[in-house]
Structure formats: C-alpha cells, structure tokens
Design a protein around this nucleic acid. Sequence first.
DNA 1: CTTCAAATGGAGGGACCCTCCGTATAATAG
DNA 2: CTATTATACGGAGGGTCCCTCCATTTGAAG
Lengths: 195, 195
Amino acid sequence: MTIQDERAESPGRTQRADARRNHDLLLRAAREIFDEEGDTSMEAIAKRAGVGIGTLYRHFPRRIDVVEAVYRDDVDQVVAVAERDVATMSPWEAVDSFLHAFVAYAFGKRRFLTELREAFEKNPELKCDARERLEAAIRLVVERGQGAGVVRADVTGDEVFGLLGPMCTSASLTREQCDRLVGMVLDGLRPPVTR
Amino acid sequence: MTIQDERAESPGRTQRADARRNHDLLLRAAREIFDEEGDTSMEAIAKRAGVGIGTLYRHFPRRIDVVEAVYRDDVDQVVAVAERDVATMSPWEAVDSFLHAFVAYAFGKRRFLTELREAFEKNPELKCDARERLEAAIRLVVERGQGAGVVRADVTGDEVFGLLGPMCTSASLTREQCDRLVGMVLDGLRPPVTR
DNA sequence: CTTCAAATGGAGGGACCCTCCGTATAATAG
DNA sequence: CTATTATACGGAGGGTCCCTCCATTTGAAG
C-alpha cells in the first residue's frame, strides 16, 4: 500500500505502460459517459473503455473515485475563471461575474454534479482536494469583496457555495430561473441597508 | 385496474380490514425508519411493519410511492404554518417568519428530503400534489408580499422554493449557516434599491 | 530467455428493487 | 354456520448494481 502510493506519487518509478494507458482510457470513457448519460454503471464505464471490470476497480477502487477524478478537471476550469476575474475586475464586478459564471458552468454539469453531491453525502469525510479548491475559489472572490466593503461580512464564501451549488443540481429550475436567483442572491450579498 | 381505482377512491366500497390495517402499519413503519435511518431498503420497511415484501409492494407499487406518502403529512404541517402566518402577520413579517420556519422544518428532515429529491429527479413527471401544495404555500406568502410592494416582483415563489429547498438537503451546511443564508436571501428578496 | 512483480479480466458474493404466483383469509351469500 | 370467492398475503427468485477475489497474462529487468 505504502509502496504503491509512493510509486504513484513519483512518476519516474515503474508503472507499466499498459496500466497508464488503461487509466487514461478509463478516465476518458467515464467523462464521455457521464456527459452523455448522466448516471451510469461501473460495468458500462469499463466496457466503454474496453477493459474488464476488475481493471476499472484496480484504478478506481470505489465508484466515488471515478466521479472525483472527473470532477477534478471541472474544478480546474472554475478556479481559472475566479483567478482571472479577481485579476481583471473591480471587487464587486468580480463577485457578480464569477457567481454567474459558476452557476452557468455548474448548471451545464448538473446531472453529473448530482451524482457527485450524493457521493459526498454518503461519505461526508470525503471533502476532497477538488472541492476545497472550488470553495477556495469562491472565497477568493467573496473575501476580496468583503475587504473592499461591497459584500456583507456576515456570510462566508463556503456558505454561498452551499447555497448556489445545490440550487444548480435541482431538477426543477431552468437556466433562466437560476440566473434570476443569482441576481437576487447578489442583491442579498451587498451590505444590508437600513429601511 | 379501473375497478381497483374506483374502489380506492370511494372509501365506502369494500376494502378488507387487514388491508387497511397493513397500509397503516406500513406507513407508520416507513415514517419511523426514515426518521431514524435516513435511507433504508424496502425489505427493512416491510420487516419493521411485520408484513411480507409482497404486501408492501401491493400497497406501494414503487419505492417512490412510500416516500411520497410520508412526504404528504410533512407538507400538511408546512402549509398550516403558511396559512397561519398570512392570517396573523404583516406581509413582510409573514415572509420572514415563514421562510425561516420552512427552512427549519426542512432542515430537520434533510436526510429524508434528500431521498425524495432524488426520487423526483428520476421521475420528473411526478410533481405530485404534495409538492404542488408546498409550492402553493410559498407562493401564498411571497405573492402577498409582492402585492404589498415589500417583495421584489421579478422572482416567483417557486423559484424561492427551488433555492431554499435544495439548500436544506445539502450535507455541508449547518443549521446556523442555513439560517444566516435565509437572512441574506430575505435581504435579496426586498425590492432592489439603487446604489 | 528467464523470472516475477504488476496488471488484467470476469465469475461470483451480497444488497437492493421489484414481480409473480401459490396460499390464506375476510367478506358475503345461502 | 358453511360455502364461495374476490381480496390480500408472503417470500422465492429475476434482474441490476457495486465491489472482491484470484487464476491467468504480460510488461520489464537481468
């Protein structure tokens, strides 16, 4: 186990060529099939990749490991948007732009993200790196707004994530409704005014 | 089939005493076991009720039918709160009070509601009566606020439901965070002010 | 080529949802 | 009370899925 982990972490060590190739085939197959079908079985992923079910489980011991691996790439894209917005926009513009972009992206992946969310609920300890990076991206934008005084201070970025993330995976809302709700949430994010 | 439906709809017609008793036993068992375990198997429900699995399926042909039956009672309670708030409070107070009450109630039932939401996602056509009554309850409160000019007009009650409902079933938010987010959403619900 | 750890593939175990149908029984007629 | 019968019951078993196990194969090193 330890040996295997060390090997995985130092790519120079021996990993057989067929293993690396099958790993890539499986990941590609999983991404395709999640995009097309929404949910699927482990058998279907293995078949799509052209390998046996045992090979799939060698590379991804549990179903959630496949889901998480696919998730990782998605997170990269969102993080990049956050960093770009923070670098190029005013504090409030960045919040507005990023939250809309986040919801747009998440909405398009809703079926896959539903599966991921279920996996997280079954294994709450699995707040994996990917998810933490995503929350960090939202925090980056939100806390910058709070520092500039354009975002209320009594809500955290993680909480905003907890509000908008589940909304995107809700089957009953259209894309337009999600956008409208983001607008409303943005209004709620501004520092409260006395009425 | 038609005969059976007609019989079910007119309670005076013959339904055997054991059937009615088992129906109640099953419903009670399902409620208990959902509250205690969160999710469960059909076998466990039947066992808890002391009947065979076949009897369970006679009364509730699919898993979602059990979930929906339990859901129905929950909805009754929420609807009653909405009606009480509308009858006894000012338009804005009713919105504030009801949304907090709604989230508090839903939060306590989060594990069960997660199961229900999944069922809805698998069968989107099953926007059952119960769910519609729930949405109607939120509409009742929200639209009254809109009529009085204290709630922005460009968001519907159903959309607020779509925002807060999924939030409650999110595993990553605590009760306190949900409450704080409701406060923020309430601020966002007020008619926008120019800044 | 030899050797062997690494990797493969698929049968099968276990859990679950649901169907089917032989058996049992409540309700009704005589 | 008994006979009749539609109604209801119970659980074996089919199908699907996740995952494990291990006999077999194969890439890589000497």
